[in-house]
Structure formats: C-alpha cells, structure tokens
Amino acid sequence: MLELNRYLGAPIHRSDGQLWGKVEDVVVTGVSHPLVHALIGHADHRLWLITWDQVERFERTSIVLATSVEPTALEARPLEELQQAQFLLKRDVLDTQIIDVAGTRVARVSDVLLDHAHAGQLEVVGVDVGVASVLARLGLHRLGRKVPQKVVRWSDIHLTSDRGHELQLADENALVHTLNAAALKHLLAVVPAPDARQILDHLDDQTTQAVLADPTLARRLVLGSRRRFTRLQPWHRP
C-alpha cells in the first residue's frame, strides 16, 4: 500500500540522475476506481504535467522520469486542463471532508492510500481518516506510529470537495447513485446543504418520495429557508 503523503514533495529525477523538480499533486482518472493518470510536478517556479507513461520508476525515495521525457508545462491553474472524470488527489481529496457512507460518519482525509493495479498502474483504494497520518505530517512520526490508521475503503466514500462531488454526481456508477433510501437519508442529512440539494435533484421520483417522507429532511431540502420560519418547531433533537 502506498501513502500519498510520502510522495507529495518527493524529488523527481531525470533518467540521468539529475534532479528535475518535486511532486506537487497526482491526477487520477475515474470515479469508482480512480487510476493514477499523471503527476503534477513543480520545477522552475511553475507546474508541469508528467503522464504516468513518462514515469520510469515511482518509489518513495526515487521518482525517475523516462529517458528523453519533456513534461508539459501547465497554466497556473491546472483545474481548467483537467479532462472529464479527472481529479487531483491533493487538491480534491487530501484534507477534505468526506462522508463514510458505510460507517455513517463524517471524517476528514489525513492520507490517500494507493495500491498497484494491473499493467503497472496505481489505483486509489482508500483513505486514512485517523490522527496517525496527521501526526506523521506534523513531524511527530514516533507518536503517529503508536496510533492505528483508520482506513475507509474508496468504494464507501462520498467526496464533498467541489470537483469530487461534481464528478460523483455525474458518474452513474458512483456510490451516491447506488444507495438505498435509508443510506441516502443519512448522506443527505450530513453533507453540506448545497450538496444535499444537488443530490436530491439527481434522484428518481420514487427515491425522492421515499427520502422526503422523512419530515426533517423534507424541511431541510425542499422548503429551503422558508421552513426555518417555523422557529417554534420542537426543541428536542430531531
């Protein structure tokens, strides 16, 4: 299992051993099974796109470019250059809030876990949401090793970052489109309010009716702010 944090900021060398730059972010393609598509490198005060086939070796201590590779220079904001179903692991996943749908909880990503897939590719398999990775990133490695990781499988996650949420809504195989009414109710109760409204807009009529049978969710999602005019609604917890 590879941990994203150990590779962010890692040095990238040319095939002749000369230092080229460092890893800034990782581009992945696919929502349900994201595969590493490219690295974003930082060199000469600008960002570069290094496609995965241009990477000769990807090890913690040694990331080496293939012979005679010239990475593509990116504009200042790589967002515009991303293609459909592509997102960035550092910008769109790391340190963002996620919903662990299986564990019915809200969490924040401390690390992204990758594993080797077929044909030399790397796949995102899960995230760590525990404090172990936070401690390690703060330089408290010894303390971090004493705390176990809290791993959530990628297949159980709904992302709340702008790009992540948008891609999951657009991909019909994404988790959000496979949930039953009970799981959807929980998800809609904990995602940020604007995201919840967008998810609701993507549901079919039958599921929408089932979800809105819950009066608390109905107040939150359908009536918008007007329902809150009923300021005298019960004082006990819903």
Binding site: D95, T96, Q97, R108, S110, R137, L138, A193, P194, D195
Partner: peptide, 20 residues
C-alpha cells in the same frame, strides 16, 4: 454557507494540515 465548512476545516483543506 457556500462551502458548507467552518474556517479551520477550510484552512486545513486549502493550506494543509500544518497551517491548520
């Protein structure tokens, strides 16, 4: 309202774990 997150959470997302 726009991001659905509090200030410290947003700082961690935008500026990383050390700054937060």
């Amino acid at each position: 309202v726009v991001t659905g997150q509090g200030l410290i959470g947003l700082i961690r997302q935008r500026f990383g774990v050390r700054a937060a």
